[in-house]
Nucleic acid binder design. Structure first.
Lengths: 187, 187
DNA sequence: TAGATCATGTAATTTGTTACATGATTCG
DNA sequence: CGAATCATGTAACAAATTACATGATCTA
């Protein structure tokens, strides 16, 4: 009831509604047809989540009057919702978050545009990269243990994890470059 | 109640108990100190999950008699549990599974050792790679859309996803090579 | 002897999943 | 005119998180 932070799904919804008001059905289609597809597009997840956001005052409902017979209930971001997004955008990546839900750091990056200065965004990405590299060290320490334990598959699986996080670390470096280039392009 | 398939956590538990019987506390420490760390090590998740597995007959409880005053309830894999693992090991990766929980395909690979022939394991990895590459195509198709929509962050986030899945696809190829080398080494 | 760690678990709450229910509208 | 899609939701259930509760044993 007094839960301070929101679920990933709720943040994703706020991020979408920041662009344009949407109906629950709109959201379903977006989740079913874009890279946000790892969110469930089932109405049983979306409608209750929108209702929760409305109850908290982060979102406002309006009925689309243009179609009287088949009303669409549009959800629009309210100012407190903007504030919640802004606050979330300022949270750094932690090891815990990386392990608990690895998709949160990128989702936050995706939605933070406009809330942070370029240098703060770069700071966020640096922190993200640092957390990933620290966890990579942990995983690499596991290599001798996994070799000793016998069994080829656990060893290969460990390499799967290492390669995945290496790709994430490399992406943070690349993204920082992209942001700096974009910055330099504007005198 | 009649849920046919198990949760990821339950499969992970079966996989651990296949090696050696463990107490709930043992499991907590393993989750807290190995690459399985993305599973919650909270007792509120582990003890109920073990109880569910026992109720289904997949796991058997035994009390460690060596420490009477502080009894440890060990869980051991029962034959139906072995059967459940075996059945799971034979399931191919689907797009849906990849999006719903990206960690399932590797967990299954990690636990399938011994249940499948080398050629079937290679078949599994090929299928996994195919699903990843198919989803990569979907993501790459999103690039023009994301460019047109304005906003740098969503575009960079899309690349994050692409790089992550590229790493997974490359890993499946590499793992297949590893398995073939291992196979050729034994005449 | 006080605090950390071992070791077990439960209770309340929240969230998500699956399945169902309803009805309008559009398209072939 | 029938099927697909638009559009909204609810109800039952399963699962996880957080917090709490309890007590033994080891260690500084």
């Amino acid at each position: 009831m007094d839960r301070e932070s929101l679920t990933l799904l709720e943040y994703a919804l706020l991020g979408l509604l920041r662009i344009v008001p949407l109906s629950g059905y709109d959201v379903q289609r977006i989740f079913a047809s874009t890279p946000l597809g790892h969110f469930s597009s089932s109405p049983g997840a979306i409608y209750p989540a929108l209702k929760r956001l409305e109850k908290r005052g982060l979102v406002r409902f309006t009925v689309d009057a243009s179609t009287e017979l088949r009303p669409r209930r549009l959800s629009a971001l309210a100012e407190p919702g903007m504030g919640a997004l802004d606050a979330w955008a300022h949270e750094p990546v932690t090891r815990d978050e990386l392990l608990r839900d690895g998709r949160a750091p990128v989702l936050r990056f995706s939605l933070m545009e406009g809330f942070l200065s370029t240098s703060d965004v770069i700071g966020y990405l640096r922190g993200y990269g640092d957390v990933v590299r620290a966890y990579l060290d942990e995983l690499r320490e596991q290599r001798p243990l996994a070799e000793g334990a016998g069994g080829l598959h656990p060893l290969l699986s460990l390499e799967h994890g290492i390669r995945g996080y290496e790709a994430q670390a490399a992406w943070t470096d690349w993204a920082i470059e992209q942001l700096q280039e974009r910055e330099d392009g504007l005198p």
